[in-house]
């Protein structure tokens, strides 16, 4: 179980008190009348699926019931920081040192992206030529 710091309660609580609510910092189109269907679709349905640093919206549902943001590494599950609604993250994928950014993120080589599923022979990895 994780201990997650709630920025409103200002203390660490058990993970079971929290619920994730998806990607954070989604800005609603400012001018709905002139927004294209494509932009609406992107806003409503399409979410990032980051491997590495990801900013997420969480709610302290058993507790103060406030929403807040978590910056989290989706590969290592490390929580870098939590911050209140309306604040900007201090840790982002851009400003994190390269070594930390890469930690736990397995770079895809030779087409295999599944962790621990490296083939015994490289020839098995070739796509069949039809």
């Amino acid at each position: 179980m994780f201990h997650i710091h709630c920025p409103y309660c200002d203390e660490y609580r058990e993970e079971e008190e929290f619920h994730p609510r998806g990607q954070a910092h989604l800005a609603r189109p400012a001018t709905p009348d002139t927004t294209t269907d494509d932009e609406w679709g992107g806003y409503l349905f399409f979410r990032d699926n980051e491997r590495g640093i990801h900013h997420e919206l969480w709610v302290h549902s058993v507790g103060c019931r406030k929403f807040f943001n978590i910056t989290r590494n989706t590969a290592t599950y490390e929580i870098h920081e939590t911050y209140k609604m309306g604040e900007r993250p201090s840790v982002t994928a851009e400003n994190l040192p390269d070594s930390q950014h890469q930690s736990g993120v397995q770079a895809a080589t030779s087409g295999w992206q599944t962790v621990g599923a490296r083939p015994e022979s490289a020839s098995l990895n070739q796509e069949e030529q039809v």
Binding site: C9, R13, E14, E16, E17, V62, G63, C64
Partner: peptide
């Protein structure tokens, strides 16, 4: 005083 989990309830 805190609001928290208690058993399987809150």
């Amino acid at each position: 005083g805190v609001t928290t989990t208690f058993g399987k309830a809150t």
